[in-house]
């Protein structure tokens, strides 16, 4: 079976002085039924890539196939099959949720009942409220309802949770997962690593218009950010040889004789070992902390920079 989305050597250069090379040779292949994420910092070229795949921008060069078809030859058919949510859209404030979703449903030959879709995004109680009176999270769910009302096989979401509070973000995630559970294919961009880890079976980390790493979140973490960090604090020094280290467990700096930092490639195997060694040494553990590597660490390992401008990893 064809891939749901396939693009080869996408290049997009915006003319100007100097020209902006937003996308610089990007290839992707996304299977049907998959939730694929494009993770990258602001300005990485995520939106540009997505809009090229959505047929809203034309690439400077490169080829795109969506559900086996191209935008040049099958645009009307593809429009029926894809649902999108743009990074920023201001829906009409003076229309109600139901009026808005019904408007979008009218554009499709085969559309879902607007009321059903509104229920799907848990906005039944707001169906007759004006969009202008909704919270940011609720507005985003209306945008998703508009994307879903055409019964798409393919959903494109551009930073769907940026700027939302944690609870609203979780609601959006749930929606995306429900859609995927019903067999839909999702392509989502985000600069939140927690979102990518939570939703995406595979992802591409994009920086400066190029894919710098690709794989499942676990694979990416394993191959690029490696090991879990285990910190152990003792009440009295156990001596530096208190634990037997090896391939999967190594001991790093121990500046303070009470404090040890270990790196492990498998937390599950190492943790009992640590506890046992501590017991044998006869000293008491005061505190134990672990830090599992995240996609943020992967990005830092690959680029030396943080995903978000603020540099915070939340």
């Amino acid at each position: 079976m064809d891939a749901a989305i396939e693009c080869v050597d996408l290049i997009k250069t915006f003319p100007g002085k100097p020209p902006v090379e937003a996308v610089r040779g990007l290839s992707l292949s996304i299977k049907r039924g998959e939730c694929f994420g494009i993770l990258g910092p602001n300005g990485a070229g995520k939106t540009t890539t997505l809009e090229i795949l959505e047929g809203l921008q034309t690439p400077t060069s490169g080829t795109v196939r969506i559900l086996g078809k191209t935008w040049e030859s099958h645009a009307p058919w593809l429009r029926e099959k894809t649902g999108i949510s743009l990074q920023e859209t201001k829906l009409s404030e003076e229309l109600t949720v139901l009026e808005t979703v019904r408007l979008f449903s009218s554009f499709y030959q085969d559309s879902a009942d607007p009321n059903d879709v509104i229920a799907q995004v848990s906005l039944e109680s707001k169906a007759r409220s004006l969009i202008g009176k909704l919270s940011g999270g609720q507005k985003q769910r209306v945008a998703l309802a508009c994307a879903l009302v055409g019964k798409p096989e393919l959903l494109f979401l551009d930073e769907p949770t940026t700027g939302l509070d944690p609870q609203s973000r979780r609601q959006v995630w749930e929606l995306v997962q429900n859609y995927q559970d019903k067999g839909g294919t999702v392509l989502i961009t985000t600069h939140y690593m927690d979102e990518a880890e939570k939703l995406c079976g595979s992802l591409a980390i994009v920086d400066q218009g190029k894919i710098i790493a690709e794989g499942s979140p676990a694979q990416l973490i394993k191959s690029h950010a490696g090991q879990t960090r285990i910190e152990v604090d003792f009440d009295t020094p156990p001596g530096s040889n208190w634990i037997e280290t090896g391939l999967e467990l190594s001991q790093m700096e121990n500046l303070d004789p009470n404090h040890f930092v270990l790196h492990s490639s498998s937390l599950i195997e190492s943790l009992p070992k640590v506890l046992e060694a501590a017991k044998k040494s006869g000293k008491t553990i005061q505190a134990i902390r672990t830090h599992q590597p995240t996609l943020e660490d992967v990005f830092v390992a690959l680029t030396g920079r943080h995903l978000r401008d603020e540099g915070a990893s939340s």
Binding site: T100, R102, S106, F107, Q109, D110, S111, A112, D113
Partner: peptide, 24 residues
Amino acid sequence: MSEISKKKSLFASPLFQLVITRLL
């Protein structure tokens, strides 16, 4: 699934919906 049909009713046509939302 009341609003599903291959041949759209006038009410569910894009023209009608665009005009009515604009008036609203």
